[in-house]
Design a protein around this nucleic acid. Structure first.
Lengths: 135, 135
DNA sequence: TTCAGTTTTTAGACACAGTCTAAACCGGAA
DNA sequence: TTCCGGTTTAGACTGTGTCTAAAAACTGAA
């Protein structure tokens, strides 16, 4: 059972037809737990094969996110990053460096969730710990 | 004591020299508690006097944010909004409509904050309740 | 008041992330 | 083989925000 087979299975389970481009993107995305932007991913994949277009990377990431394979995050500077860890977990954002890291310790909310606006259902609760470099 | 005087005092207290443009922007921003993007604000101010430039709106909002008069938020779709309520409070984001609202009930974290990365200090903790419209 | 120096504002060019479009491509079924 | 749907592609396009250089406005001193 190779990594490729694992990932092909993962896509099939999510109901996503396999293509060579999707396999490549998924490999890069799931190889290590990190937070990648579309352009970073495009660069990584592009350095392997020059034959993958920007639109495909964007489409594929959106598809993966819709199917629950990755979590889309927007923290700052108008750049969305994709987290291959889909379990709910807080993030730590360094406002000076722009670095985004996972917080492995689970942070629970004390008390019940607030009343949601009428006609809406909870999707998830994002917790972002913002830090700055000390002088 | 008019609204203009209140706001002029507010800027002075924050160490921001007063200009007519800053006063106009601040009025629009503090008149009602809402979440405005730079372009929305530009449109509102521009409809009053056509003589205020985009760069000024962006610069002023950044200045206000640095001085702690407003809170800058980035939620999704690469658009930053400015919240005139600077007290820490959670937000509710509707992923279907893009609407961002305040949650007035305070949400505390259970347990201590996680260990911060070395060389960093806490700025704030953002809590965003993401909801979707029910079908 | 005039002058010089500083701060603020301005228009427009620019950069960047992401979307859209229309055509090309691919793979399977008939 | 042809047809047909889904997928990929290049490149144009949009929208948000930044940069730059020049104009304008303010400030304090003479």
């Amino acid at each position: 059972m190779t990594l490729h087979h694992d990932i092909a299975r993962k896509l099939a389970d999510a109901g996503i037809p396999l293509t060579s481009q999707r396999l490549l993107i998924a490999c890069e995305l799931f190889a290590e737990h990190c937070h990648l932007s579309a352009d970073e991913l495009l660069q990584r994949v592009g350095s392997l094969t020059p034959d993958i277009s920007r639109a495909t990377v964007y489409n594929t990431l959106k598809l993966f996110s819709q199917k629950g394979l990755v979590q889309e995050l927007v923290v700052e500077n108008g750049k969305r990053v994709y987290d291959s860890n889909t379990a709910p977990h807080p993030h730590c954002y360094n406002a000076d460096t722009g670095e985004l890291t996972d917080v492995h310790q689970s942070l629970q909310l004390a008390g019940p969730l607030p009343e949601l606006p009428p006609g809406t259902a909870l999707e998830r609760v994002d917790i972002i710990v913002r830090v700055r470099n000390v002088a």
